[in-house]
Design a protein around this nucleic acid. Structure first.
Lengths: 141, 141
DNA sequence: ATTGACGTTTACGTAAACGTCAATATAATA
DNA sequence: TATTATATTGACGTTTACGTAAACGTCAAT
């Protein structure tokens, strides 16, 4: 293999170190997903790695985006939703109108997240009650 | 229409009143989903309404299950996951082994929910930072 | 020169969760 | 009773998020 990452440090870090690059299979292993998934995210414009020839080279920024993508997925968001979030974050507004649009979108996101938080709390409360009831019944045996 | 719900009270309630029944379209309207979706949940054994002839009659219990289904969906769980949860809750254990299995499953659920809670908090924190930064930039104009 | 490990593109396949007709059956109402 | 509204059962279509080959390129090592 072409020596793309010649002096990759062995020290444990969060993977976001500057100038550190990754191959697709390194990222796949790190995040426990397939290379196919990573390429798919690129098709959907969620990541845009550099290229050396045809080969993809992922940066620390790509690493971070991937982390955000997977977190978004665990929260049940679609890739389209996640794309929105990512584009929101790395758009360089500068203009007033842009900033205000960003704030509106952020507020909508917050709405959605708060709804989820409520749902989460309710679900946990019910689970608590259920577990308590189970233990109660176990005791009465 | 056959008078299935003859004395449905007009007072606002949580829809879980005992002995109250619903037609499929009433539920659809109430929850903002299509009748197709509701029938699909039945195909997947998430609800099992009574029948009068071929027509489906939904009980307060069905109403509650539907509410739980939609909450599960908002949390990003698959219908299979949700089916597990529902079956978990309304299984009548009685036996010790059953109860212990239930407790194990409950713990797994909790794991998943806590992971989501962490993800949710992180995402909200980042959103906060982003909003603050936006407002900051707006002030400097 | 070949083998192996990894990477690439292209293309078709698939499971989940419904949407969207179409045809038919009841039910409610004028 | 005729009409209108609602319900039911197929059956096929659609979107999302990848999986699964197939066929080929690249480099390192033997």
């Amino acid at each position: 293999m072409l020596k793309l990452n010649p002096v990759k440090p062995e020290i444990a870090n969060d993977g976001e170190t500057q100038d550190l690059t990754y191959t697709i299979s390194e990222l796949a292993k790190e995040f426990g997903i397939t290379t196919r998934a990573i390429r798919f995210y690129e098709d959907e414009h969620l990541i845009s790695p550099e290229r050396i020839g045809r080969q993809r080279i992922y940066s620390g920024r790509d690493y971070t985006r991937l982390k955000l993508i997977l977190r978004g997925k665990r929260l049940g968001f679609t890739l389209a939703d996640i794309a929105d979030m990512l584009n929101l974050y790395d758009s360089e507004p500068g203009e007033k109108a842009q900033l205000e649009v960003a704030l509106v979108k952020a507020r909508q996101r917050r709405q959605s997240l708060e709804q989820q938080l409520d749902d989460l709390k309710l679900t946990m409360t019910e689970l608590d009650a259920f577990e308590t009831s189970c233990r109660e019944q176990l005791k009465n045996l």
